[in-house]
Amino acid sequence: MTNALEITQLNYRKNTKTILTDVNLQIAPGKIVGLLGENGAGKTTLMRLIAGVAKNAKGTIAVHGETREAPRRAFVSFSEALQGFRPADKLSQIRDFYALAYPDFSAKKYLDLITFLQIDDDQKLSTLSKGTREKFIIALTLSREAAVYLLDEPFNGIDSMSRKRIISSIIQWKQDSATMVISDHYVSEIAALLDEVVIIKDHTVCAHKSSDQIRSEFGLGIEAFYESIYEGDIHDDEL
């Protein structure tokens, strides 16, 4: 069976600084994977490389076996920060953009999602609070019927009600066969959601384990496991 995501010997430097070295990662279809690491560890960069918007990396990235950049983008739904839109744009105009830009955009899913997340898409982008903006980004990202979803820190700085709604919408609207990677540096609230955990440290993937493995082998919660790796309590040879 083709892996949803297969990264081999990925190396990436930007402005002569090393961001990622020798990253190898395989993720099976249907999994929800937590991508954990400190701020600046390279989580966003890894996602942008998978999504095909970060350039000049060495190594290969295959999404459903597709290594070429442009066709790969068609498989990947990335929670983009809406940077190409103007503050005066209405949310419904942004929806129209998505509907036109992505053949796999489902108008029905979008409607279900914004109803569930309590977003009124008659508003202007500039009037949204941080939480609503993040919810709207999630609604757009999940409205595509993609093979791989990449959610880049979707819970950053938003209130707990929005967070709960986002988590529920992920459970409800992720297709069974789709793979989802969620990056975060604070894991406890999504721990119950994750099939697998990938930890990035020192520019590379230093651990890739299933959540159950962490709980049964190490007798630790995911948060505790992540912390002990960062604090050096668990050594590389134990992983």
Binding site: V53, R73, A74, F78, Q83, G84, F85, F97
Partner: peptide, 9 residues
């Protein structure tokens, strides 16, 4: 902008 660079084109 990522919005356009992410297009599957």
């Amino acid at each position: 902008s990522d919005t356009y660079r992410l297009l599957p084109t």
